[in-house]
């Protein structure tokens, strides 16, 4: 039996090219913001600083996955399948940084 897969057309915006370039400039700008913030916050060692950089990373990830990897225009079920596990991973990253800080406290306590 001849089987041709007939995929429902997931919509791609007509102005994809301009969207791509827009995303590029957004990513470019966020990277610059990252670097500037790094030098502004150089002497700051609070946990808040990490969250700022991680959130900026997640924002960049949103644009890369959403536009470049076309996730924004895919079925919602596919999106949740990929994105939800990663939300928990980001949570674990945050937890382990905090935990590492406590380990540091114990290690260097005089």
């Amino acid at each position: 039996m001849e089987h041709t897969e007939h995929l429902e057309h997931t919509e791609t915006p007509k102005d994809m090219k301009s969207q791509i370039w827009k995303t590029f400039w957004i990513l470019f700008a966020f990277t610059i913001v990252d670097i500037i913030l790094y030098f502004i916050l150089l002497s700051n060692h609070s946990m808040m600083k990490n969250w700022v950089f991680i959130i900026l990373g997640v924002v960049k990830a949103y644009y890369i996955v959403g536009i470049f990897m076309h996730m924004k225009f895919e079925r919602k079920s596919l999106m949740y399948m990929i994105v939800i596990p990663m939300v928990f991973v980001v949570f674990l990253v945050a937890l382990m940084i905090i935990e590492g800080d406590f380990t540091g406290l114990l290690r260097w306590i005089k």
Binding site: I97, I98, G100
Partner: peptide, 8 residues
């Protein structure tokens, strides 16, 4: 992240 923060 863990190792980095377990150092000063």
């Amino acid at each position: 992240g863990f190792i980095r923060y377990s150092f000063q």
